[in-house]
Nucleic acid binder design. Structure first.
Lengths: 232, 232
DNA sequence: CGCCATATCGTACAAGGTAAGTCTGGGCGC
DNA sequence: GCGCCCAGACTTACCTTGTACGATATGGCG
């Protein structure tokens, strides 16, 4: 009865930076980014918090790491695409890439938030951007225009935009009801909302079709770039 | 020598939600948003941390509050403007508004970050957006188009965009040097950077003129909207 | 002068990041 | 074969930050 088999021979897989980062993504996918603590992450791996520090310098590095994991996932998906990009085809190619990136991000809703707390950008993101520039060059963009285009696209290039108002918060109508009370102070907004909501079949005030709006804004920019490109 | 004048009669101004929020903005302006802790904030006010909780429910409310303070500052500036917005003038009017908002945000570099951690949006932001919709309506936008326009503008409407790479980080060249090493893996990006940097007089690789890029993207979108508006 | 609402403070705890030291098992020189 | 070493994991403990809870100060009023 002395300690012989003190621990079941649980075939403890050794930790590694890879394993840590993958587990971190899992934790964030399951419980949101705020649930990603070093202790929770260790638990996920069947280890102790401090053990993680042998593989990553600190939590910042974990965040850098998972951003890179996601960007890599995006690259994997996006590199499957083989669309023509020469001349006027550039736009379709870029559009398809960006929308594919967006699909990946929709699977990791916490990722956009992490991306823009990152001060140093991930290698995989650089790789992604590089390919995007490549498509634009194929389309006849000057380097200068491609550069401006990146800035114009901003976070949209990676498939997300920062929502100023996040529809997924208050108990549905509440905010809208409060808004109706001050309708006299917000004539334009209230008028707009009423009309837009009316046109839309369901729409309890979760009225915005994210996908549609995203594409609208994206196309606006792409069309503008295309017009510049033609006249250059 | 017993405690008589235990404290100089320091005419302690009473706390108030107003004072707390203003102090919070000051702290953030001075030390960045990460320096804004309840204790630091109390110190700024010559009080103790727990005293703040009589005037604000919790730190989230402080953050909501300072977002609103900044948005109010924007509204104050922007409401000074009296530009014609009827018909084709809409674009100049909107442009001017947004660039003015941007000027305010440049004085509070932490503000964009706070804005998009806010899940409930500040009344002052709603007010701002409402006025923007008003200008677009003046320009002949349908409510529907105005709605899409808001989405297309995204955070740009308030005068900021999320930089994917923040130039203000690594020791200047470092990142660029590392990038040159893998030039073969990033042909397009490196090519673009070399050329763009070459055109630009100084440019140590802090090559991007934020203001120019911001206006470029903004105009791209505004021009696109204008074209849609004309054909509607 | 005593009372109570209002405003402030002191103490204390929980959560989370992480510094520093400790234990352990397997490889390697002798 | 034997002991040393060290990578890798664990233990303890500390510090910061938000905030619950209750005590305390203050000032106006009956």
């Amino acid at each position: 009865m002395t300690a012989r088999n003190e621990r079941k021979p649980e075939p403890r897989i050794p930790l590694s930076r890879e394993r840590v980062l993958r587990a971190a993504v899992d934790v964030a996918d399951q419980g949101g980014i705020e649930s990603l603590t070093m202790r929770r992450l260790a638990e996920e791996l069947g280890a102790e918090a401090m053990s993680l520090y042998y593989h990553v310098a600190n939590k910042e590095e974990v965040l850098d790491g998972i951003a890179d994991v996601i960007a890599t996932e995006i690259n994997d998906v996006v590199d499957q695409i083989d669309a023509p990009s020469k001349g006027p085809d550039w736009k379709k190619a870029v559009r398809q890439r960006i929308l594919s990136a967006r699909e990946v991000l929709l699977r990791h809703p916490w990722a956009p938030g992490v991306f823009d707390t990152r001060t140093n950008l991930s290698p995989a993101v650089v790789q992604y951007i590089d390919a995007l520039v490549g498509l634009m060059r194929d389309g006849g963009f000057s380097n200068d225009l491609a550069h401006h285009a990146l800035h114009a696209l901003g976070s949209r290039a990676l498939g997300f935009t920062h929502e100023l108002f996040d529809p997924s918060d208050g108990a549905g109508d509440e905010g809208g009801a409060a808004m109706l009370e001050m309708a006299d102070r917000l004539p334009h907004l209230v008028g707009m909302m009423m009309e837009v909501a009316h046109d839309d079949p369901d729409s309890t005030l979760g009225w915005c079709d994210d996908q549609f709006e995203f594409e609208f804004g994206l196309d606006l920019i792409l069309d503008g770039l295309d017009r510049i490109r033609e006249t250059a």
